[in-house]
Each structure stands twice: as structure tokens, then as C-alpha cells.
Design a protein around this nucleic acid. Structure first.
Lengths: 184, 184
DNA sequence: GTCTATACAGTGATAGAC
DNA sequence: GTCTATCACTGTATAGAC
């Protein structure tokens, strides 16, 4: 009984988790098949470009999610409300460090070159949006840009450290420090 | 004409670079053979446990290097001198972000569980050593621990960001911020 | 749209000649 | 100590039946 998945987007969540947990090379088609519940035939039907297209689709979905839930509020909403909301939203998204940032993982690996445009634009957009919020909160342009870069880097570092120490509290402490520095 | 490599340590630098650049799964034996200049036979002679033993040896070497050049000075030397020296030394070691932290890469990947002890002890030792320096510089214990954790996480984050943006200056700016916060 | 069968290059690892 | 030959297996990708 072949099941019917009419939407390519339906498999993106599972796909995203597999890449997150195993990286690009570690995510074998066998594993992807298991986790999405689809055979190779179906996978290649939705993603004729194979793994590379799957990863690109996942990166695009992540970029879309952050654009809507993180970057846009930073650019448009009241910064004093948007920045704490970013912290909360990031804490939930990364499950207090239990989940890693796929874009960060790709940035560190040898697949970086293959997805360099998507990786670069994700981080550039984040820094830019946060800097805008800081400017509207009254900072100088240069200071805002500096603090934004520091905060985005700190979030990535917090994910590395939380995974390394296997300590969700370390991630929560990091987020609290980042929020305090942004609002100071 | 078979060349003779009497020391297992002789291949560690090349081995370390391969794992750094390609991750654990991406570092194939073929690649390792090319970069070390050794055939599989020789590799398995030095590392009977295969890739896992190779990676463990690399992690041990890294831990030794940081212990000697970073952790020990932080614990023993004048903190006002040791902390800037740590920043300088880290900047050189990671080639201004052109080189990634293998321990951090492993922490984010699915090999984390296999090397969890080594990964955890590396970061724990770093935070501990830096916290000791901060205490001797006059901070309260709790504050010192917090700042140490923040700085170590920030270094990892700076590496992710520098690779993502392909921007060595971003790494240098991050290191400057971290140094300023440590000495503030 | 989903599946099974298959191609074939590449994987980690081993054996044995030198 | 180093090499080559070879192992069994898994990798991605494709073809074609249904």
C-alpha cells in the first residue's frame, strides 16, 4: 500500500532532523529513507538533484522560518520587545541546546563551499536584522553592528559548548548573558 | 622504495588536518592515505583500531597542546599576561578563523558520543583554567566562572561565524571583543 | 507517486608478500 | 614497516514495474 505524500514540504521536517543529527555526509539515503518513510524512488521523485537538492531545500526552509519568526520582528517590531523575543524563540528552536544549528554545522564542514551562498546570507541577514533593532534602540551604527555580530556568534558558540558539555543549562546561561548584553 | 616513519606522532599533524577539514565521516582512508603519504597497511600498523584510534590520537594531541600552551599558563602565570597571551595563541592556532576547532566540530556531529569524554574534558579544562586566571585577577568565583564560560563559547562561535561569512576579520574582531571583556 | 531491483564506485578493514 | 590485493559492505543514483 503506497502512501501518498503530495507535498514535498511534508518531508522537510524529517529531512532537516536527519541532516542536523548526522551532517551532510553522515545522512545516508538509507537513513533518510527510514526517517522520512519514503523509498529512494519517491525521494528522487521529489528531489531529482539527490542529497544536494534535499539539503538545499532544508536550508531554504530554515531561512524562511528565521526570516519570518526572527529577522522580520527584529527589523519591524519594537526592539525592546523583539530582542527578548528573539532569545526566547531561539531557545525554543534549538531546544535549549539539544538541537544544533544546521547552518552552523554546514559552515564548519567541507560542504560549506557547496552551500556558501545560503550559509552566508543566513548569518548576514541575522546580524543585519539584529543591528537594525539595536540602532532603533538607540545605539550608534558601528556599536550596533558590533554587538549584533557578537550576539549571533555567541549563540553559535553556546550551541557548541552545550553539546560538548552535554549541558542544557550552559545554553540557557549563555542566552541569558546574550540578552543582558543586548539590552544593557 | 618504502619510506620509514618510525614515529606514530609524525603523522598526527597531517591526520589532524584531514579530520579538521572533512570531519570524521568525511575523512576517508583513501584521503588519509594521500595526506599522510602512508598506505593503509602502514596506517593500520600504527593505528590498529582504525579511524577511531586515529581520531582519538588526534584529540589527545590537541588536548596536550592546549594543556601546555593555553591551560597551564592560565593556571600558573600572571593572569594579566596569560589572558592576552591566550587570545594571541588562539588566534595563531586557528589561523584567524581559517582553521576550525576539531573538538568543536566533533561536538556538533554524531561522533560526539564516541568521543564524549575527550570533548567534555577539553572544554571543561579550558573553562576551569580561564576561571582560575580570572579569580587570580580579582574576580569573584561565580563571576569568573561565568566570564570564562562566555569567553570559551565566544571563541567557538567566532570560528563558526568566520567560516560562515568567510571573513577572517570577523574572527579577529571577535577575539578583540573577548579580550576586552576578560580584562575589563 | 511509490516501490523493488540493480549498477557500480567507494567504504573501512584484513591478509600476506617483501 | 610498507606495500598491494582483496574482502564484504554501504554509498549514491538510476531504471522500470505497478
Amino acid at each position: 500500500m503506497p502512501r501518498t505524500v503530495t507535498e514535498r514540504a511534508d518531508v522537510l521536517p524529517a529531512l532537516s532532523e536527519v541532516f542536523r543529527e548526522h551532517g551532510f555526509e553522515g545522512a545516508s539515503l538509507a537513513l533518510i529513507g527510514q526517517r522520512t518513510g519514503l523509498g529512494k524512488g519517491s525521494l528522487y521523485h521529489f528531489f531529482p538533484g539527490g542529497k544536494e537538492e534535499m539539503a538545499a531545500a532544508v536550508l531554504a526552509e530554515i531561512d524562511g522560518w528565521f526570516g519570518q519568526h526572527v529577522f522580520r520582528p527584529l527589523r519591524e517590531d519594537d526592539p525592546q520587545r523583539a530582542m527578548p523575543e528573539m532569545i526566547r524563540s531561539v531557545g525554543a528552536y534549538f531546544r535549549s541546546g539539544g538541537r544544533v544549528c544546521l547552518v552552523g554545522v554546514f559552515a564548519l564542514g567541507d560542504v560549506r563551499d557547496r552551500f556558501s551562498a545560503a550559509i552566508r546570507s543566513y548569518f548576514a541577514a541575522w546580524i543585519e536584522a539584529l543591528a537594525q533593532a539595536l540602532v532603533r534602540a538607540g545605539r550608534d551604527d558601528a556599536v550596533a553592528r558590533d554587538r549584533a555580530e557578537e550576539a549571533v556568534a555567541a549563540i553559535q558558540g553556546a550551541l557548541v559548548l552545550a553539546r560538548a558539555l552535554d549541558d542544557a543549562d550552559a545554553f540557557r546561561r549563555s542566552l541569558a548573558r546574550i540578552e543582558a548584553r543586548l539590552l544593557a
